[in-house]
């Protein structure tokens, strides 16, 4: 009997142990290791014990490195532009298509495809379409008698090219989330507005958007976090070039480690990127906490009124 009780008490730990062990050894430890490695002068041929401890020098070097600052700004610019475009398009489409139309289920299914396919393959498809002579864009332009566009060989156009590819891939994400949020809005509020004689536009601006705001903000932050992680599509499309025009931070980390074999510096960059994302995530948590608290207060107030 006592053995059975003991076994029962141990069960939860036995269920949890495999997950715990894997997470500690394969996730927590590497992240801690990276923070440590960012203080080392370390090349891949060395064991970490042989690498020299150099304090904050990797970070100082980064700050003085013009190429790093450039790619930092490229990242910010890319994330800001892409997320703004996708939010406007995605929410706009959701507002437009929030009605009983037959093809809707089909559209939603088809819309997930770009997100499900490997980013490497997405990059491949777009690279083919951007091809200077055989790509579909330039062929179409030339058929109509226009000049071809140097999609991937001009620094402005290549930035536009990666933005277009990302918008193609991720607008559906915003669309689907916005549509889900819209369809769970309380019908009563909209009906009340209708009775008061609100027109379509007023309903959108004064009822739908404010009520959807919590979900929209979380969506925005999720997308923003993901925008900082984009790497494969750009790697295949431009490999950061021409020059540094499309070299976002994640790609720079990859190249620093892979091509230039500067693991310490790559770790320092990883740390900076991680800290930026940490700020965003904490912002998101704080926002949803505040929102929950407000909702709870409102509910309490409503109940009080009802009494």
């Amino acid at each position: 009997m006592s053995v059975a009780i003991k076994a029962n008490r141990l069960t939860p730990y036995m269920f949890l142990a495999p997950a715990g062990i894997i997470l500690i050894f394969a996730l927590l430890y590497p992240i801690g290791y990276m923070i440590y490695a960012s203080f080392l002068d370390w090349s891949p041929s060395q064991r970490i014990g042989q690498a020299e401890f150099i304090g904050f020098r990797n970070y100082v070097n980064l700050w003085g490195d013009e190429a790093f600052r450039e790619s930092f700004w490229v990242t910010i610019r890319f994330a800001a532009i892409v997320v703004t475009l996708e939010m406007v398009l995605g929410v706009g489409l959701a507002l437009l298509l929030d009605r009983n139309i037959k093809g809707m289920a089909m559209l939603r299914t088809v819309f997930i495809l770009p997100m499900m396919i490997a980013p490497i393959v997405v990059g491949l498809m777009w690279r083919y379409m951007y091809h200077p002579t055989v790509g579909i864009f330039n062929r179409t332009l030339k058929n109509f008698g226009f000049e071809g566009i140097p999609w991937l060989s001009d620094s402005t156009w290549s930035f536009i090219a990666i933005v277009i590819a990302d918008v193609w891939q991720w607008t559906p994400f915003i669309f689907i989330l916005a549509l889900a949020a819209m369809q769970s809005l309380p019908r009563s509020a909209l009906e009340a507005a209708e009775i008061d004689g609100a027109n379509e536009w007023q309903k959108i601006v004064m009822i739908k958007l404010p009520l959807m705001m919590p979900v929209l903000i979380v969506t925005l932050l999720l997308r923003l976090i993901d925008a900082f992680k984009v790497l494969e599509v750009i790697l295949v499309l431009t490999n950061g070039g021409p020059g540094l025009s499309t070299e976002i931070l994640a790609l720079r980390i990859f190249r620093t480690a892979q091509e230039f074999q500067e693991l310490g510096e790559a770790a320092a960059m990883s740390n900076l990127l991680l800290m930026m994302l940490m700020v965003l995530t904490i912002g998101m948590f704080a926002y949803s906490r505040v929102q929950e608290a407000r909702l709870a207060r409102q509910r309490a107030a409503v109940e009080k009124d009802a009494d």
């Binding site: 992240i31 790497l231 994640a250 980390i253 480690a257």
Partner: peptide, 9 residues
Amino acid sequence: MVPPAVLLV
């Protein structure tokens, strides 16, 4: 939040 690029090194 953790990008695969950060785990790389």
